[in-house]
Every structure is written in C-alpha cells, then in structure tokens.
Nucleic acid binder design. Structure first.
Length: 912
RNA sequence: GCCCGGAUGGCGGAAUUGGUAGACGCGCUGGAUUCAAAAUCCAGUUCUGGCAACAGAGUGUGGGUUCGAUUCCCACUCCGGGUACCA
C-alpha cells in the first residue's frame, strides 16, 4: 500500500510546483525522525528489538562505548561519532549471527552538577536526572541499537553499592610480590617480630600492605573550586584543568591506592591487547619502567651508607659528586656543622617553592654543598655530597651519583657550580666533530662508545674498551659480587590519590573510630547513601561538604565506642573503572554480577572512545580488573581486548591576517573566499576546536531536524578515517543526505524493482560491494564502506532496473549505517519483521572471478596505454604482443626493449 | 628536550604485500528540465600549455634504493597529541 502511494507520487509528471514540493517534503520526512524514522524507532523500543538475552548457544560480541558524563549542554557531535561506529559493528555482528551486548549508561557523578548545586541549591541528583533524560532522548534519536534495559547510572545507589563493595575488596587485599598477585589480607603472613608488639603493631603492618590506605598526602588544592585535584588534573603550567586557576599545595588525610604494585602486570598485559600502539606507548611511558642498579656509597666519617639508584652503573668511574634530595632522611647527619645554616636555608627555600618552580627546566639548577664526602666504591675516591632540588625524594632512593660527562642534568649542574667533568666514555668516530669536546669534558655525551679512564688498581675493576651494554652488565655483576649494590627496577607511576573533598561522589564505606581503628562497612550495610544537605559548599580548610552532615557523620557502635564516617568521596574514575562489568548483569541485587554471565560476555571485544582517556581511565580500570581477577571475581586478565580511539570532530574557523579569530556568524563566503561581514577584510579559513566563542558548535539535534538521523550517522562515518581529527562541513552532510534520497528514490520505486536474473555487471558489483562493506566494517573503515555503497547505488540508478533480490541485499548492506532507511526499504519489500537479525549476505566468489585484466602498459615506469589481456597469458607472449601493438611503436621508436616487466594482474612495464 | 601521529586537487578524503595517483563526496563549470528559481538528471573538473589529439609537471622539502616509490631508507620542515629534572 505504502509503496504504491509513493510510486504514484513519483510517476506524476505534473509540472506543478506544489506537487513537487509535497514530494520533496514527504521524501525528507521519510528520512528524518519527524516522519517515518521516529515511527520505526518507537516500534523498536516498544518491541525491544535490541534486548539482549544470555543465549550461550551463540557466539558473543561485546561492543562498548565509553559512557558519557551527562552534561547540561547536551550531546555534541563528537558523541555520535564513536557511538555510531560501535552501532554499525553491533548491527553487522547481529546479522552475522552473534549475540551482541551493546549497552549505554551514564558516568553521572561529577563536578558540574555539584557546582550548580552550590550556586542554586538544586540537589545534584535532580540536575543529574534531567541531564540523563536529555542525553537519553538525544541518543535515542540517533537510532542506536542499545539494549536500554541494561542502562546503568553510576549515581544510582544500586550501582554504587558495588563500587563501594569493590573499594572494600581493594582495602582488604595485599599484593604478594613473590606470586605477583593480589591476595586477601587475611592470608597475609605476619612476621613474629610484629606479632610480639601487639594489636596496634599488627594493624599498622597490615595497613601498610593494603591496596587502599589512608595517609597524609601532599595534594594540589584549587582555591577556586575548593577541591583537591589529582596530579593528573593539574596542567603543566600549574593550573587546574577544570577552572584554569592556579593550584597550591596542601597536606590532607587522603585515601590512596597502591597501583604501582601492579606496575609490572599492567605493563606486561599490554602485549596481548589489540590497542592502538600510541595508547600502549602512553601507558608504558606513564608506568615508566627503568632498569639499573642500586649502589651503596660509604659516607666519609659516618657509619651510614648512602644508597643511590642509577640506570648507568657503568659510569661510576665518572662520578664527580653526589646529590641528595632536600627531603632525604640523611641530610641532617651528612651536613657538617659549619654548613648547617646554609643547607637549612636551602631546604627551607626548596620546601616553599612550588613543584612548578622546582621542576621548571628553564630556571636552571640550584644546590648547596654539605661539606661531606662519600667514597666511590669502584675506585675509593672521595666525591662531595650536595643537596639539590633537582633530585626528587619520590623516585629511586632520593639520592644520586652525578656523572656530569654523561648525564645532561648533572652536566648542567656541574657547569653551574664548577664541579669537575670527567669523560669516561669515548664516543668514537660516531661523533666526529663532538668527540674532542666530549673527551675534554666540555660536552655531555649520553650515547654509546668505548670506556676510557674506567679502571682501578685498588679495586681491580676495569671496563676500559667495553661498550655501554657490556659495561653496565660487568659493573652490576661486580657490585653484586662485592655486596656493594644490586640490579634494580624502578617505576615512575605513583600511588593513586583516591579521595575528593566533594559531595557528589560515592561515599567511602568507612568509619574512623576514636581508638584509631578503621572499619569497612559489611556488604549487608551497602550501599552507604549520601545524606541530604542544605549547603554544598566545601570548607576552606579542605573539609568535604559531607562534614556538615553531623547526623550522618557521627556514629556509635553497640559498645558505645564513638566514630565518624569518612567525609571524602571517591573520584569520578571510580564508577567508570568497572561499569563494563555491571552491564553484564545490571539488575542483580544479590551479587555484583552472575559469574556465569561474566564468563560468557567478557572480555569486551570492542571498546571505542576518545583518546583523552588513553592513560588514566584505561589504566585505572585495568588495575581494578586485575585485582578482581586475582581475587577470582572476574575470569579475564584484561578487560578490553580491542580498543579504538575516534578522532575529534573539529570545525572550520576564520582568522584575520593578524591571526585574530572571527566568530562564524561574522563571516560570509563569496566565490570560495571568506570575508568579514562588517569590515570586508578577507579571512583565512582554519580548522579549530568547536567553541562557543567562535560560534561554530554543531548541535546534533539541529542536524537531525534538518537531515534526519541517518544523514548524521552516515556523514560522521563518511568524513574520513574514524581515528583521525576532521573538520565538520555542512555541505558534507548534504552530500550524504543526497545519497540517501537518491537511494530511496530508486530502491523504493516499485517500477525499478523487477523479477528474474540479475544483470551481470550489477551482480558482479553487488558481490564486490558485499565483500568490501563486510571487510571494511571489520576493519572499522566506514568511510570507504559508505563510498562502496554509493558506487553501487550509482550503477543501479544508471541501469534503471534491479532485481528484488538485489534490492533486498542492498537494504541489508545499508542498514548498519542508515538503519532507518534500511528498515524502510525492507518493509517496502513486504517484509514484516525487522532486518536487524536477517543473515548478512554471502559473497558469491564465482561472480568475482575474472578471465581478463586490463593491463596498464608503462614505458620506463610511465603509464602510456591500456591493454586487455587474458589472465592465463604466458609471460613470453606478452613481449610479442606489446612489440606488435600499434600504440607501442611511438614509445619503442624502433628500438628493442631492454627488459619487459610483467606482474600478473598488476602491470606491464617496458624498459627501453 | 623526549615519545607518538600526520602532511595527497579549490575542500573532506581514496589508493591490496612497492605496480594505472586523485575512488567516493563537496564545490565549481557547462547542458537538460522550468516562465523562473529550488530540486532532479546528464557531461566535465590535479596543475601548466594546446581548439584538440597530446605533451610536460605532480602526493610537505632535499637526497637514495628500484624496471617502477604516496608506499621502503636517510636527512630535514611544518602541524597535532602526550610527557617533562624519574637519575
């Protein structure tokens, strides 16, 4: 019925303006959510087309999006990019017979809702609910095939009950270094000497091993936001990434997680993952593994030894001074009496300096001599000990041996303070011009070479003539043999600061008792809910707003012991660390999830999201997962098997010749050039991030209103490779919109659809298209898949006729990308059921077989003409054919070819 | 500084292990249709020269390997991301 109605409109030859407009509007509506689209969508939702069951008989596929923070501004065009990509894969996999888990939820704890609460008094839960509703509405308008029955929300007590539960697991786990594995604390062996000292000593010992611990921590404090920020939230210029104001140091009781215990596991685990190499590199850099040695230096005149960490034990012979960090425990005993004032003043100044000043490379190095010397273990020579803040207490042993000739930082320091620079590594011919300078101690050399001046009759050690690799090996075994040091590994990664002085986060299920005991709520007592508050503003001293909820904070146990609840809350990372697990069994109130279901669905097969989460979210999440794995709660070692980052969608912006940016509404285009609407000045088109000030922000709602959801989906996929950054262009949306209309006009018109045998050319291209679209989806190359669909559509339109079977296949191929149009065509062909679970078309390889190939014929590498030849032609026949060919005469110019290159199915090249 | 990624027509971008550079889309030009416009359809569109046939140049720059290089190697320029005294 429906199709006949449309065909009648199309077959009308009236040149009547209104009829045409009506046709156009109906067409547009068919492709927009105002018309047929929305009907389809509602039907899907009502019938729960995409409800996922735990059908263990089918192979599974878990396609996951990084869930959004539902901000008040709603969806931006970046969101649908990743969502559409996973949706295409999900729809394709369903048609390939997979049981697909494709869920969506909300990472809804976070600052903006709380800031809004501070300003207006509106409870963050209210704001959050409204924002989630808006996001859900917007996402549903995109026609994404989520199973909405699995929607989760990190702020839902039914969800964060389990976030708190995992925290209690972390608290009750220690890391067994021998087994390289997390284990329950009740399995922690307590040494006898600890036991002898009583309950408190045992408690301290255990607390010192827990993966989650409570301690004083120097933290960044943002005066503007009144919040503690993690190091990761502080930009390199010392500003808070959220508000941009300068942060300061503060010392507060904090929860920390011992993620460095898992450093090696987190590093090794990367090997087996199908992740972008760049993300793996970033994680590797973040973990920052380095190998070297710890070496003991006897301190002259003291019994203590000074232990240093170095990656270059081979350069011990070049050590001309030592440095200890200002916070080093031996500073006081090392410093000679007459130097005490000077050293104390330096330490005080260093403590007052912000980390930024301390780590500002441009500011040059500072330091002060302690007056004391250490004895170099390789040659017994005395080296002066300095205090300098370029050595950090938090890394290695907080002390170094300095080898200015072969370390750039030490070189800079030695030059500043006139300390000798002794070259012990001859760069050799590799650094011809530099070599003399290096040998004279005038230039620093960190590369390879041959050792000189690296022998001592006193100790018997010599590495002269060896290269760097052999030198390091030799010195380490010498040190170990003499008991002077040992090989050692260090990691840059630090403990994870896991608490925030905020209201809108998961409360810690923790009670601090007056006697110093800390207890964790029992599973039965979870979730610990947030109290209602009148006032959300945090205290100036760094108190969390929760401290004001005295009824909630103060508790008394059955013996009358008083205690108070932890008033910090967890950071936003907490909820996102494990959400992929809850989707598996989202409504389970008894357990975090059913282990059977977890075994079936894990790991995540495809995880798509922004590259901004390359390190933190993914590293934290992997850390939690590994702990859960060690405790036997999850069955896989890693959570995300394949990861992919979508590139950012940018926008065109305009700037004047002086580089001043001009808002888009002040720009007009004339003949491909851009001018300022008011001044008339010619402007340069550039690519920039979308921003309110540039007025170039695109709202997906607006795009859908005009072009429909299919066009938005298709355009975002057609723009370019998924992982690259690319600028939004309205004309590009029109392009794919035109394609959808063109396809609709052709494939929805019954007079174009015929019965019988398909045209040979069409059949061949159809099967090439099936092949291309399938493999492109598998490889996430959606732009070329869409291009293949366009090519096929162009041929179909040109031919004017298509068989019903071909039309059905086209609808199927199109449907992962443009599901509304796909379903529409499918129902026009008389199918009553959705095509979402129809089998994906098979490629008929026979149709792709060729008997001839049109060879490009080149002369000296330049293509001159084409020649169709049978595929089974013999090599020596080619030359005869070419020489005899009339087109070749001009290029051969009477000469015989020197050589004929023939690559079957590729090229013929004649060398003259 | 170090690590990673990128550079192809007027624009977004294609190009299997080295084998016809510019698929597809936008824009533009011409034509059909229309009283006219929009929409649609057809043709053309890397640059330079030429009416054309055709010729020459051409994938950020400079070298190299090869019968043949957008693709591989060396040196560099610019743009983007990450990181920053981690010994």
């Amino acid at each position: 019925m429906e199709s006949r109605c449309y065909s009648q409109i199309f077959n009308l030859t009236l040149n009547n303006f209104t009829i045409k407009v009506v046709t156009w509007i109906i067409n547009s509506m068919k492709l927009s959510p105002n018309g047929k689209n929305i009907g389809k969508k509602i039907k899907h939702l009502k019938h729960k087309t995409f409800k996922t069951t735990d059908d263990y008989s089918k192979p599974k596929y878990y396609a996951l999006d990084m869930f959004p923070y539902p901000s008040g501004t709603g969806l931006h065009v970046g969101h649908p990019e990743g969502y559409t990509a996973t949706d295409i894969v999900s729809r394709y996999k369903r048609m390939k017979g997979f049981n697909v888990l494709h869920p969506m939820g909300w990472d809804a704890f976070g600052l903006p809702a709380e800031q809004y609460a501070i300003q207006t008094g509106t409870h963050p839960a209210v704001t959050t609910r409204e924002n989630c509703d808006n996001f859900r509405r917007q996402i549903k308008a995109l026609g994404l095939s989520y199973d909405w029955d699995r929607e989760i929300n990190t702020t839902d007590p039914k969800y964060f009950k389990w976030t708190q539960w995992i925290f209690s697991k972390l608290y009750n786990t220690w890391f067994d270094k021998e087994l390289e594995k997390g284990r329950p604390v009740d399995e922690l062996p307590i040494p006898d000497e600890i036991k002898e000292n009583g309950v408190k000593a045992i408690r301290d010992y255990v607390d010192g091993k827990r993966l989650a611990y409570y301690d004083n921590a120097q933290v960044w404090w943002c005066n503007h936001c009144k919040i503690v920020c993690s190091n990761e939230e502080v930009l390199t210029d010392g500003n808070h990434e959220k508000c941009g104001s300068q942060v300061v140091r503060k010392n507060l009781k904090q929860w920390l997680l011992r993620i460095p215990h898992y450093a090696e596991r987190l590093l090794e685990g990367l090997d087996g993952l199908d992740w972008p190499a760049g993300v793996k590199d970033m994680q590797k850099n973040w973990i920052g593994k380095s190998t070297g040695a710890e070496v003991d230096f006897q301190i002259d005149g003291l019994t203590e030894k000074l232990r240093v960490y170095t990656t270059r034990p081979d350069t011990l012979f070049g050590a001309t001074y030592m440095v200890i960090a200002p916070e080093h425990e031996l500073v006081d005993s090392i410093t000679l009496e007459e130097r005490k004032d000077e050293v104390k003043a330096y330490i005080k100044a260093a403590a007052l300096k912000s980390d930024l000043d301390r780590t500002d490379l441009a500011k040059g190095k500072t330091g002060v001599f302690t007056g004391r010397y250490a004895i170099n273990p390789v040659n017994g020579e005395k080296v002066p000990i300095w205090v300098a803040d370029y050595v950090l207490m938090g890394y290695g042993t907080g002390a170094i041996m300095a080898v200015p000739a072969h370390d750039t930082r030490d070189f800079e320091f030695a030059e500043t303070f006139g300390i000798p620079i002794i070259c012990i590594l001859d760069p050799g011919d590799a650094a011809h011009e530099e070599r003399d300078l290096v040998l004279a101690g005038k230039k620093c050399w960190t590369g390879d070479g041959k050792y000189v001046n690296s022998a001592s009759a006193k100790t018997g050690l010599s590495i002269n003539g060896l290269n760097k690799q052999a030198g390091i090996k030799t010195v380490i075994s010498w040190l170990e043999e003499k008991g002077l040091g040992n090989a050692s590994v260090n990691y840059k990664m630090r403990d994870w600061l896991f608490s925030r002085q905020r209201y809108w986060g998961e409360p810690f299920p923790v009670i601090h008792w007056e006697d110093g005991e800390v207890s964790i709520l029992d599973e039965k007592e979870l979730p610990l809910q947030l109290p209602e508050l009148e006032e959300y503003t945090p205290g100036d001293s760094g108190d969390s707003p929760l401290a004001n909820a005295t009824d909630w904070v103060n508790v008394v146990d059955k013996n009358g012991r008083k205690g108070h609840r932890e008033t910090n809350t967890m950071p936003q990372w907490a909820g996102s660390c494990w959400y992929y697990l809850r989707y598996i069994d989202p409504t389970n109130d008894e357990r975090i999830f059913d282990p059977e279901k977890e075994k079936y669905w894990m790991p995540v097969d495809l995880y798509i999201g922004g590259a901004e989460h390359a390190v933190l979210h993914l590293l934290y999440s992997r850390f939690w997962h590994k702990v859960l794995f060690d405790l036997g709660i999850v069955s896989t070692n890693e959570p995300y098997q394949k990861l992919f980052n979508q590139g950012m969608i940018l926008a065109f912006a305009y700037e004047t010749s002086t580089g001043a940016k001009v808002a888009s509404d002040l720009v007009e285009e004339k003949e491909g050039k851009f001018f300022h609407r008011e001044t008339g000045e010619e402007l340069k088109q550039i690519v920039a991030k979308m921003s309110k000030s540039l007025k170039n922000v695109i709202n997906p709602d607006d795009v859908i209103k005009v072009y429909g959801a299919d066009s938005l989906r298709l355009y975002e996929m057609f723009m370019g490779p998924l992982d690259e950054r690319k600028p939004w262009a309205e004309t590009g949306v029109k392009g794919v919109f035109n394609f959808l209309n063109r396809a609709y006009r052709f494939f929805a018109n019954p007079t174009n659809i015929v019965e019988g045998e398909e045209d040979k050319e069409v059949a061949k291209l159809l099967h090439q298209t099936i092949k291309k679209v399938g493999s492109d989806i598998e490889n996430l190359k959606f732009n070329t898949a869409i291009s293949a669909l366009m090519v096929f559509n162009n041929l179909a339109v040109r031919k004017g006729k298509i068989t019903r079977q071909t039309a059905g296949i086209f609808a199927k191929l199109l449907s992962p990308f443009a599901p509304h149009l796909g379903e529409e065509l499918w129902s026009l062909y008389g199918k009553s059921k959705t095509l979402a679970y129809e089998p994906w078309p098979e490629v008929d390889e026979n149709l792709l077989q060729e008997s001839t190939f049109e060879y490009p014929v080149s002369f000296n590498g330049k293509m001159r003409f084409k020649l169709e030849l049978p595929l089974d032609i013999a090599r020596d026949e080619i030359e005869k054919i070419i020489i005899a060919h009339e087109n070749a005469q001009k290029w051969l110019d009477g000469k015989a070819p020197k050589k004929v290159i023939f690559v079957p199915k590729k090229i013929i090249n004649i060398v003259i």
